[in-house]
Write a protein that binds this DNA or RNA. Structure first.
Lengths: 312, 312
DNA sequence: TTGTACGCGTTATCAC
DNA sequence: GTGATAACGCGTACAA
């Protein structure tokens, strides 16, 4: 007990005792056991995050910012990769709940009812991110993918493009962007809104292949929305390879504003998503909830904005 | 006790009891507490990994493969970001040891003696990765950065380049590559081996800026080793921007064989590092050690190999 | 200021 | 096949 006090509240023991404890700690190589502490206190001082993938630059800002903010408040971050598969997600969530983290940050909305129920039953604070809904499990920091698709369609139309297309993956969020993009284009009277779904992950190679296929089936297009910057870079390379000048003959819009977007030649027009802000806000909500403070605004739409550069 | 058996060894209870337990579990929403279990068993069923950074594509294959392999054996992965700073690393290692993970995977060698001692005293299995030394703390799966620098210098020399340069970051591993590259170039009688250290992280932008600076101070160079594929892509873009033809007037070699390397135009010559293999091997060693099985080969050099494409 | 008793939730062990 | 007991290491509550 005296050791526990000496380490956690040094002011509550005499300097002499403190010194004796410290000497013994050093001599024995004593390290407090966080599992025992967590069990006793019913607080793990740890927050779990669940991502679809760690591969690809998309969520890196978010994770880095989340980890940094949590560390500053004395929480560790535990990361799980769920893939884009609902069954795997559910299993991983249940494993995570067993560890009794002080909070769970999810990248994306929870799809399966099983996972949703497990989270609700656990009474652990949850922040969903990187998407938007009016009915989150608990808290939410994100943006609307449908709004992005519509905005880009509007942007291309405003620039005079009447034959547009989208190159995209086919996960749920990508589908929301695609549907909104197609719908807005149609509403604006764009002559054609080709849609090409790559099955591969969002790589530069997929972008090249995507644009190549697109230019064969619909050579009349003058504007393309690529639903990640990697895809956009691939499309840019393929366009240059085929002798189509960007932006004169083909306008390209990316998504994510990865650091390379501004260094491409021409620099990529893209949609900026503020992963750093999302991570910091998610951490803030999480910590407030974990420490019993009230959360003023548990649902935050951080939005997005277009960054217009030279590829359009 | 019967519940514990029903959940962990269903064969040891009667089907009837099992059914009663399962009903109660569902009705009450019971979820086993992994902290209590870990405390009692002295096994957390968790492995911690420490990375310099999650940003950038460099370690993604490794982490993904590590997480996947561990999950298959029933271990969770906890990730910590240490930055490239020794003090921060030491602090993080001590925090991690408090959680009593079954193993610790380090990306990079441990530099500070304090961290080294803490790890040794903890008696937790440790795998260092992504580098090589003959005296690891415990186990090691990696490759020699010096050997990479020398190999690339040799490769460029064999291709007839007599004025070569390196564009690189300046962390410890980058310095090892740079020193070996310079030394081998000199030994081979290359007329000049310019060295340019970017202070920024290894981004496409840094690669562009690096090459631009280099071409001003040493326009005679015909071969450049960029110590990441992102830098190489930046150099490629800058070369094309300045009208230098690649590979005819300037040969570019990258490092990492990221997926975009093969999709650049021209496709990038690079050095392949098998992150997936390193992750899988590290997990294998870790699990064997954690479960008390002997580890035949605790120090593995997985090497690397040049992937020659069109940029040289 | 320091020390004692107890309980957090789990599982190894032994008795029934 | 099932249940009782104890112990993992910590911190709260209270006694000295």
């Amino acid at each position: 007990m005296t050791v526990s006090r000496a380490l956690n509240a040094p002011g509550k023991v005499t300097p002499e005792t403190l010194a004796r404890v410290r000497t013994a700690v050093d001599a024995l190589g004593y390290v407090p056991n966080a599992m025992a502490s967590g069990l006793r206190m019913a607080r793990a001082r740890m927050v779990a995050a669940l991502l679809p993938t760690l591969v690809g630059p998309v969520f890196q800002e978010l994770v880095e910012s989340l980890a940094e903010s949590l560390k500053r408040s004395g929480y560790q971050l535990m990361i799980g990769q769920a893939g884009y598969d609902a069954a795997q997600e559910e299993e991983l969530i249940k494993t995570i709940i067993q560890r009794r983290p002080d909070g769970i940050v999810l990248v994306g909305l929870v799809s399966s009812p099983g996972a949703r129920n497990a989270l609700l039953a656990s009474r652990i604070p949850v922040v969903e991110t990187w998407d938007f809904t009016d009915h989150p499990i608990d808290m939410l920091v994100g943006f609307s993918h449908g709004a992005i698709g519509a905005s880009v369609a509007q942007f291309l139309h405003d620039r005079g493009h009447r034959h547009v297309a989208i190159i995209t993956a086919n996960d749920a969020r990508a589908q929301a962007r695609t549907a909104a993009f197609m719908e807005r284009s149609k509403a604006l009277g764009a002559q054609s809104a080709q849609c090409f779904l790559t099955t591969a992950p969002s790589t530069v190679g997929a972008g090249r292949k995507g644009l190549a296929t697109l230019l064969q089936t619909a050579p009349e297009i003058t504007g393309v929305f690529c639903s990640s910057d990697s895809l956009a870079l691939g499309a840019l390379i393929e366009a240059q390879h085929q002798g189509r000048r960007v932006p004169q003959q083909l306008a390209i819009v990316g998504l994510g504003d990865q650091s390379f977007a501004q260094d491409a030649q021409p620099a990529l027009t893209t949609v900026r998503l503020d992963g750093t802000r999302i991570g910091a806000l998610a951490a803030e909500l999480m910590i407030a909830r974990a420490e019993g403070r009230p959360v003023a605004e548990p649902v935050v739409d951080v939005g997005f904005h277009m960054v217009v550069r030279d590829s359009t």
